[in-house]
Structures are given as structure tokens and as C-alpha cells.
Design a protein around this nucleic acid. Structure first.
Lengths: 231, 231
DNA sequence: CGGCAATTTGAATAATATCAATTGTAGTGG
DNA sequence: CCACTACAATTGATATTATTCAAATTGCCG
């Protein structure tokens, strides 16, 4: 295993308050791994034996119903902790994490969790902040799902992707990892057919530009209007 | 202010590991208050200046959209901590809490949060366990909302109420606080009309028995079937 | 007893899912 | 390099569910 460089973590909030030597310790206990697109990092209901930090790539956090339907609960971007079930005193993961693009993550055994929270200033704080944000995000999604029509939900989902992972290109803001119509339908609780129709219509209107697994939002402001965020 | 009795807390998980004297300290810092049905304990977005323990009654946790629609995110039963935004490093409450029935709650200023978590064994653990359960619950609701048809969602919502707050009576299991058709529609993201029609049909089928603001489930097993929890 | 809130119910409508078939695109291996 | 295959996307037609609109009824509280 190659030695990991300290600069990997030194700017990330959970570790930004640490001394160089502490970061060294953290890295020395970490396992680094690469995940192919489509691979599961861990699965819902399994023993939560490790916690993670995403260094590069993007993840989908997914739940599956007994009936086999899937929904995408949220996405994870580089620099975020995930699989931090131990923070909530859970001994199993509450959802499945799948690499939405080729990804790299560090991980540590849960047995180190209490060491981290007690010895490393800012680590606990940041972890709980992350959880708080995620809880808020899920509540937002729930509220949206319960009250908004499909078109608005899809618009909101796209905007969320754009805000979290978008990068500017000529011609608009591009979503940084592969997304299919089907993925979006799983984020919004609709069918890929409906999503396809909506995206086609928006493309005709010049709001988005999309090819296979790839979406560029060309007129974000108009998408915001469609999303119905009233003042 | 009357002195609060130690037996109030001694059996509740967050405090069950404490010495008598510690419970005394906790109570001496607590403010006890009664809330009329329909009263807000705190509101979404406001400064999270206190955290709470529900002693008696029931609460609805509610979010409101810019458009004025409301949804009920979850319910809180006696013995549960709530308003524990500080645990997630939030400085505002992420939702509104309303007394669904006349209720009594203790509260403490957030400034005591870190004292509680560091000095009182088991308190932090239980708080985070509660959050973990709540996060799981919300994810369940989200998944359900995204994948299930209205009838199943309403069946699930009723079952959830029954499981959390139901008490056996002759003739079935009764939901322990006032619930309107409108409330159920806000739990399930549908209209009160649809809920009314469903309950009427179920009543005709002998599955529930309901009067104004009051529901008794007479055939829980059949409701489970309707809820579509497949093996 | 009056009035408000909760509930019920019918009919019309619109949104979205379902069904079904086709086209397009990328990757694979001969 | 091309054919083959698997996956992704499009699109029309139809079916259906649940909302919306509208109105009436019921029960409770003061």
C-alpha cells in the first residue's frame, strides 16, 4: 500500500484543525480503495464495521423496498464523510452506497470512531454537522415529494445535482457524473418515461441539453422558475 | 414553580444510568411547561435556544412549504427527547413542533447541552440513538412516498400511528390522540378527500371504526395486508 | 341553538403511469 | 473494423388513479 499524502485531508473540514502529526496518524489507520462505477461500497442492513471519507468521485445513497423498487436518497460529493452510522449508535448501515462514477474513498474501522471524536478536535463537530445537513436535506426531499407535482420535483432534483456537483462549461452547467433518466426517476419517485418526456420538452425549450447519461443545464434560472420556489 | 419529582426521569433511557443526585441536578435546571392542543412548542427556522423532553401528550413535527402546504414529518411520544438541534450543531430548529394533544414537556437551555453529554453517562448515546431512529423513520417515509400508491401510504401511516401510540381497547387498537382526515393527508401527501374515501371504505369493510378526530383500528392484520409489506 | 370545523360524497378533470414498440448509442469480441 | 448485444432514450396510445370542484351533512363546543 502506497503511503498516503497528508495534503489529502489537511483542507477537509473534519480534519482541518489537526496538527500535521495527527493527520499522519489518521492516514496511517486508513485504508484507501478505488471503486468502479456501479460498485457498492456497503449495503443497507449490513454490519456497519467501517466509516468512510470520499476523496474523489460521486456516490448515490440508495434504498430498496421489499417490492424491489429503488430510490436515491441523496448523493455524496468528494470531501464528505459517509457511512457514519456509528455516530448515530447504529450497528447496521441504514442505506446502500453505490459509486455513481469511479470513486476513491478512505475508510477506518468503527472501533476508531470514539478515538477520533475524542482525540481530534473538530472531528465530532463536523460529523454531526454533516448529519444535520443530511437530515435537513432528506426532510426537504420528503416535503417536496409530498407536496409538489412531478414536473417541479424533477426540476428540483436537477437543480440539486447542479448545485452539489455542477461545473461550469461553455454552454451551461454540467452535472459532473453519469446520470440516466432512470436515476432521476428514482430520485423523484416517478417513471423514466415521464422524466424523458420532461427533459425532451426542456431541451426543445433550450433549458437543458442532454445526451446519453450526461446532462447540461443551459438555462438554470428558467429551471428555478419551473421548480416553483416562490418568494 | 413546584419541585419536580425524580421519578419523572429515572426510568427514561437518556437518564436511566444517572445517580439520584444527578437526576436532581437535571431537574433543577429544567423548566416544565404545559402546552394546549394546537400550540407550537417551537417553530422551524427559529433560534434553537432550548432542548426538550416530552413527559406527557403527543406532538406533531411539521414542515411548511413556501407555498403554504404542510406536511407532518413524524410524531413524538412521551419519554422522547425532541428539539435536539444542538446535537447536530444546528442553531435553528429544522421543523415546527405542535402539541397534537395537551402535552407537558421539560426543557433546558442549549448552553447545558455539552454539560449533559459530558457529565451524564448514557445521555449522549441515547440522544444519538434517537436521532438515528428518526433519520431511519424519515427515510422510510420518503421511500414509501416515492414508491407506494396512496392507499398503501395511508395504510402505512395508520399502522405507524397505531404502533407508536396505539392502546388496546375492546373492539380494537385506538390511536391515543386526536387525528383528523386532514392530518393523515398531511402525513401521506394526499388530500383529505381521498383519505376520507379510503377510511369510509375501510369502515364498511370492518377494518377501522372512526368518529370525528378519533380512529380505532379493528382489524390491524388486514390493514397490514393493505399496506403491502411483502415478504 | 348557532356556527364552525370535520367529514362525506358525487361528478368532472387532469396528471401521470402503463403498455408497447422503436430508435439510438456505446462497448465487446470475433 | 464491423456485427452484435445490452443498455439508454424516445414517443404514441391508452388506462387509471387521485385531484379538483362543488355541495351537502354531521357533530361538537360554547
Amino acid at each position: 500500500m502506497p503511503k498516503l499524502d497528508e495534503s489529502l485531508l489537511s483542507d477537509l473540514p473534519p480534519f482541518s484543525l489537526l496538527e500535521r502529526s495527527q493527520i499522519r496518524e489518521v492516514l496511517d489507520h486508513a485504508v484507501s480503495r478505488r471503486y468502479e462505477e456501479g460498485t457498492a461500497i456497503f449495503r443497507e442492513g449490513h454490519d456497519a464495521d467501517r466509516f468512510y471519507m470520499l476523496l474523489d468521485g460521486y456516490l448515490r445513497v440508495v434504498r430498496t423496498t421489499p417490492g424491489g423498487d429503488q430510490i436515491i436518497v441523496l448523493h455524496i460529493s468528494p470531501g464528505q464523510l459517509f457511512g457514519i452510522a456509528p455516530a448515530l449508535q447504529r450497528d447496521t448501515y441504514p442505506a446502500t452506497s453505490i459509486a455513481a462514477a469511479e470513486s476513491i474513498a478512505l475508510s477506518w474501522p468503527v472501533s476508531l470512531w470514539s478515538d477520533f471524536t475524542t482525540n481530534y478536535p473538530g472531528f465530532a463537530t463536523e460529523s454531526y454537522k454533516t448529519l444535520g445537513q443530511r437530515l435537513g436535506q432528506i426532510q426537504d426531499t420528503l416535503t417536496e415529494m409530498a407536496t409538489q407535482a412531478v414536473e417541479k420535483r424533477v426540476a428540483c432534483a436537477l437543480l440539486r445535482l447542479v448545485n452539489q456537483t455542477g461545473r461550469k462549461t461553455e454552454g451551461g452547467i454540467e452535472i459532473a457524473f453519469p446520470v440516466t433518466r432512470h436515476d432521476i426517476s428514482e430520485m423523484t419517485g416517478t417513471t423514466l418515461h415521464t422524466v424523458s418526456r420532461l427533459l425532451s420538452a426542456w431541451q426543445k425549450d433550450g433549458i437543458v441539453q442532454s445526451t446519453r447519461k450526461h446532462i447540461v443545464v443551459t438555462a438554470p434560472h428558467r429551471l428555478v422558475l419551473l421548480s416553483g420556489i416562490e418568494g
